[in-house]
Design a protein around this nucleic acid. Structure first.
Length: 508
RNA sequence: CGGGGCGUAGCGCAGCCCGGUUAGCGCACCUGGUUUGGGACCAGGGGGUCGCAGGUUCGAAUCCUGCCGCCCCGACCA
């Protein structure tokens, strides 16, 4: 039951003002996103092209995500480790598909020293200091890690290896957007090694499920689990699984991937183990990752024209208290009550901020915390003091109510849960409403152009058809959903027979 | 890499076509006062290599040439 239904209601109207200077989603979604990222103090462009500065508030959200995921990894037996930033060029070229996939976007270190220019014009690269073998700034770490695993693994007793690393990687993208695609980004990459094929497949599935649970339970973002088609597969993987989410503008976003690597990297790096029977066998591998791109997903999944909307489980500050006062005495009186509520909330594990600055007006603070997506705002002034009440405003709906102070902490705690599930439900409704089942190419194109969203349609299973559709409509096969049922049909493009529907969308 | 746009105070911009006071406005900042239940108000104040380098000119933010940087749109990608 909603905590609000239990108490006296003085106001129940959405009362959110348009945030200062924030464009409307309906008018220019991508401008809205860019401005929101900056105005909510999440990140900004850096002096380096394509790279971003993640600001303290943005980073504190990322840290919440990190620690939640990290715990999930550890609960399933994984440990963190760290591997080098640099990859020798020769490593990257060992796995054919892998090098093919990444070669075009690698930053390369060629020299190790600078010197003063002879003409005094400043620093120049010392031509004498050329590296014998160039180093690649890691776009991902499979090659470094498998070259290391070779030394760690001799026998089946050394397996499995379940390692994750939190790191930065560099992919030299031509076009970047804050969080969604930057030249350097932060991520976690898990790399596991197993004695059997089945065990590696199970690991791949397990991690996919962890990502899906994280997205749904923590980010309040519904996702579809699926497997990538061959052309969308990770270079070097046998199978790539993914979770796909739908953003408010109807575009899809891949929120996490989990790869079954087969024995591809073991082959490339000659990683073998002796089984119980003494026979040598190649090791089976997986890798899986999520990145700061999740920040982009989080923003685009829930936020509105007033600013960020954060799920309580990832909000660095869950409850903010704003005192309304004219004098020092009033503030002190409010503080006494606020401190009490605050410590009760903290005892329940709720993070609280009491903003008693007298340099900003209450109205200013209201707008500011809405922009930053704080789930619950409490306001308390002289009137409340007198009546033993407090004003409670929820960010997701904009509803404001004045409630009795006694027992407020448990109501707030319940309200946080309520908000968490409400924004999930909202996102789920949005996705369901924007998921279309289409049976012909004209219908497919008109849904894409007029509505956007996920499209379930038949596909003949060929890369040619997939490429044609992409070329003509910019829509890609996001995945073959794991839950999809067998269903005979005709490919919307080629009219050839198809065994089931796949998930199409235009994507980030 | 193509197409477009922008670089003037911390941020957002005007001024530039048509060269000529002391380069201006809003926000932010500082001081004082009044305020504080939805981004307060009044008064005063500080802050500028006009992206960089050349050139034209008595005189350049403004005209010319070159360069640099960033953003947006496309091709590539998570």
């Amino acid at each position: 039951m909603s905590p609000f239904t239990l108490s006296k209601v003085t106001k129940n109207v959405p009362n959110l003002k348009m945030a200062k200077g924030l464009p409307k989603r309906t008018e220019d979604y991508s401008l809205w996103y860019n401005e929101l990222v900056k105005k909510a103090d999440l990140a900004e462009h850096s002096a380096v092209r394509g790279c971003m500065v993640i600001k303290p508030y943005g980073f504190s959200i990322w840290e919440k995500m990190q620690s939640a995921m990290d715990q999930m990894f550890k609960d399933t037996g994984h440990s963190n480790a760290y591997f080098p930033l640099f990859v020798p060029k020769s490593y990257l070229s060992k796995e054919a598909d892998h090098v093919e996939g990444f070669a075009k976007e690698c930053a390369v270190v060629t020299h190790y020293r600078l010197k003063n220019a002879d003409d005094g014009s400043g620093l120049v690269v010392d031509p004498e200091a050329r590296l014998e073998e160039e180093l690649i700034v890691r776009p991902t770490s499979e090659t470094v890690i498998w070259s290391t695993y070779k030394n760690w693994i001799q026998s089946y007793r050394d397996l499995p290896i379940l390692v994750n690393q939190w790191a930065n990687v560099v992919r030299w993208e031509m076009r970047t957007r804050l969080f969604l695609r930057t030249t350097e980004f932060l991520w976690q990459e898990g790399h596991t090694a197993h004695a059997t094929r089945q065990e590696a497949i199970d690991e791949t599935t397990q991690m996919l499920n962890i990502y899906a649970d994280f997205a749904q339970d923590l980010m309040a973002m519904p996702v579809i689990k699926g497997v990538k088609t061959e052309s969308e597969r990770f270079p070097g993987a046998v199978d790539t699984y993914c979770i796909e989410a739908l953003m408010q503008d109807g575009k899809a976003l891949q929120a996490g991937t989990s790869h079954f690597l087969g024995q591809n990297f073991a082959k490339a790096f000659d990683v073998k183990f002796a089984g119980k029977d003494g026979k040598e066998e190649l090791v089976w591998g997986t890798s899986w990752g999520t990145s700061t791109r999740l920040m982009g997903a989080l923003i685009m999944a829930h936020s509105d024209d007033q600013g960020l909307v954060l799920p309580p489980k990832l909000a660095p500050i869950q409850v903010v208290m704003v005192p309304i006062f004219k004098s020092e005495e009033q503030l002190n009186a409010i503080r006494e009550v606020a401190d009490d509520i605050s410590s009760k909330l903290k005892a329940l594990g709720v993070s609280v901020k009491f903003d008693d600055r007298d340099t900003q007006s209450p109205g200013w603070k209201f707008a500011e915390y809405e922009l930053k997506g704080i789930p619950i705002r409490l306001a308390m002034g002289p009137r409340d003091l007198e009546n033993n009440t407090i004003e409670v405003a929820r960010r997701d709906t904009g509803e404001k109510q004045t409630l009795d102070i006694s027992g407020i902490e448990s109501r707030i705690n319940d309200l946080l849960d309520d908000i968490q599930s409400n924004i999930y439900q909202k996102a789920l409704n949005h996705r369901d409403q924007k998921t279309y089942t289409v049976d012909n190419y004209d219908g497919f194109k008109s849904v894409l152009d007029e509505k956007g969203g996920f499209i379930l349609a038949h596909w003949d299973g060929t890369a040619e058809t997939e490429a044609k559709i992409k070329e003509e409509t910019k829509a890609t096969i996001r995945c073959i959903p794991l839950k999809s049922k067998e269903e005979a049909g005709k490919c919307i493009y080629s009219n050839k027979s198809s065994k089931g529907r796949v998930l199409f969308a235009r994507a980030y």
